[in-house]
């Protein structure tokens, strides 16, 4: 049985973002919308589709990122290929950067 805990206003709440990347992904969507890359109805369709595809166990922000990637690709902002290569470049950069140094491409 899922839990719906009621959080009284003023009581300590869970912060809106559990990890920094969630906040970054959130802000990217808000910014792209502000730039006119998509409308909110288009966004909600994309997010809804990602959530539906993810099923019951889907992580909300994983779906958020999937929706962002799909729209970025569909709108010609960043293709899946470019994003895949860039992700690999960052992974390599993290591996080769010594601890304590800023990670750069």
């Amino acid at each position: 049985m899922p839990e719906f805990p009621a959080t009284p206003f003023g009581a300590p709440e869970r912060p809106p973002f559990a990890e920094p990347w969630q906040a970054q992904a959130f802000a990217l969507a808000v910014q792209l919308h502000a730039q006119g890359a998509f409308t909110w109805p288009e966004w909600s369709q994309a997010l809804g589709a990602a959530l539906a595809a993810g099923g019951d166990d889907a992580d909300y922000y994983d779906c958020w990122v999937a929706a962002l990637e799909r729209l970025a690709s569909e709108r010609g902002l960043a293709s899946a290929g470019v994003l895949g290569d860039r992700k690999q470049a960052w992974a390599d950069a993290y591996r080769r950067t010594p601890h304590g140094k800023p990670v750069e491409l």
């Binding site: 990347w21 970054q24 992904a25 990217l28 910014q31 792209l32 730039q35 890359a37 990122v65 962002l68 990637e69 970025a72 902002l77 960043a78 470019v82 994003l83 895949g84 860039r86 992700k87 470049a89 960052w90 992974a91 993290y94 491409l105």
Partner: peptide, 16 residues
């Protein structure tokens, strides 16, 4: 890393 990739590409292209 996926978010980092998205962000860096979009920033580079001037979209955000």
């Amino acid at each position: 890393l996926r978010v980092k990739a998205l962000e860096s590409v979009l920033v580079e292209k001037g979209f955000v």
